[in-house]
Nucleic acid binder design. Structure first.
Length: 377
RNA sequence: GAGGUCGUAGCUCAGUUGGUAGAGCAUCGGAUUGUGGUUCCGAAUGUCGUGGGUUCGAUCCCCAUCGUCCUCC
């Protein structure tokens, strides 16, 4: 029996609704996953994450390995107990971090040596060591150790990089088969498709990972600087070549518009730092449109931050004027209210998308809602 | 009363051996896509205390004046 159940296929697009079973509960797709890099979704506690309807959150192998380190997770019996989160956790493998810290890394065929951004200490990641770390963290979904191909890059580099990512994938799977989970529950494993913006490489990668017969698959290396249309083309291509009965996770994407458009192409899972990072800088995603809350025009606007969100109580009870004041004063509460607003909005959006898919009305709903939520207020 | 000091952007201060001025902060606007925890980029703003004088030209030199702070009587 598969852990992923495709419940409904939209009649007019590739959008789907499904359910993914994990050791810490099920996830209704399409879903957005809040990013909690260092064992915390910045500025929010577990109660607030439950309140806004988070079904699963992310952790990051690179960051958690460097601090607090795997011994802490062994002692605490995993990240769930450590951070008081009893729902699913997905860990990014750290491939993205290792490759984004370009000045202090060295890639070999075996893995990547790099220096800690915290204290400069030297470390080495290989497919097997990254799997070992993710076992210690105890993630419900572990990600393959890949190279997030930089953009732009030429065909030759992309091809060579893809080859390495595929070889590393095989090592990850061998390691996963050879080792048991540490905390008595099953950990799923998602391979990652690469191939930059080259159609034949993307297709080759999809076919390669699909053969591994895992529970789900991720698409990486997109939204790294290529234009939006190219990102959609590559996403569409991958959806055409990945199995229809497995969840598809588009890594690191994106804006509300990106997410709705990619749901329409057949993507089931998303994560992105945008709602939290941009929120901390005063950009709010609301059911009425996009707000820069630090703009002077909100100074005397005492209306609620967003009356259209039932899952964000802070946004009902605090005014735009007050939130602007908190930002202008560099008060910590500003970060919490803004992060909660944006994550609640993202989760509300994908929840509505799911309802519209089940009703076979996704595309027309998407067109209408995008007009509203992408306008700048 | 005497001597000295300092008056430059909203704030704190640079600066020009005379060619009508800059920085930080604040303000205003933009960016942010598998998070290196307050980031990055851009913009606006001054009759350089006031009034005279010298000079082709003064924020700068000279005189007066107002205000500031200090010292002395």
């Amino acid at each position: 029996m598969s852990l992923f159940t495709l419940q409904h296929q939209d009649a007019h697009s590739q959008a789907r609704a499904g359910i993914l079973q994990t050791a810490h509960g099920q996830i209704e797709t399409p879903i957005f996953m809040p990013v909690g890099t260092q064992g915390t979704v910045k500025s929010l506690n577990a109660f607030q994450l439950h309140q806004i309807g988070s079904q699963i959150i992310l952790g990051n192998t690179y960051h958690l390995y460097l601090r607090p380190g795997i011994d802490t997770f062994l002692s605490s019996q995993g990240l769930h107990k450590f951070q008081n989160w009893n729902k699913p956790i997905l860990t990014d493998s750290g491939g993205f971090q290792v490759f984004s810290l370009q000045k202090i890394r060295k890639i070999t065929e075996e893995g990547v040596s790099f220096q800690s951004h915290i204290d400069g200490s030297k470390h080495f990641f290989s497919p097997r060591s990254v799997m070992n770390i993710q076992r210690h963290i105890g993630a419900d979904i572990m990600m393959a150790f890949d190279e997030c191909t930089p953009y732009p890059c030429d065909y030759a580099y992309a091809k060579q990089s893809l080859k390495k990512t595929h070889r590393w994938l095989d090592e990850c799977i061998q390691d996963n088969v050879a080792n048991q989970p540490l905390y008595g529950y099953e950990q799923l494993f998602f391979p990652i498709v690469q191939g930059s913006v080259f159609a034949d490489l993307r297709k080759e990668s999809c076919l390669y990972v699909a053969e591994k017969n895992q529970v789900g698959y991720a698409i990486g290396g997109l939204s790294v600087g290529e234009d939006e249309q190219t990102m959609y083309e590559m996403t569409n291509l991958c959806c055409e070549h990945l199995p229809t009965n497995k969840p598809r996770y588009l890594m690191g994407v994106g804006t509300p518009k990106n997410i709705l458009n990619c749901i329409e192409l057949g993507i089931d899972m998303f994560d992105c730092v945008m709602p939290t990072r941009n929120g901390r800088n005063g950009m709010l995603f609301t059911t009425q449109g996009i707000i820069n809350i630090t703009n002077q025009k909100w100074k005397n606007d005492f209306s609620p931050i967003d009356e259209g969100l039932t899952n964000a109580p802070l946004s009902l009870h605090y005014s735009k004027s007050y939130l602007r004041h908190l930002f202008m004063s560099n008060e910590l509460l500003a970060l919490q209210i803004a992060s909660m607003q944006n994550l609640a909005f993202y989760l509300h959006l994908v929840k509505q998308a799911r309802i519209q898919i089940v009703n076979n009305n996704f595309s027309s709903w998407k067109t209408n809602i995008l007009d509203i939520i992408t306008q700048r207020l």
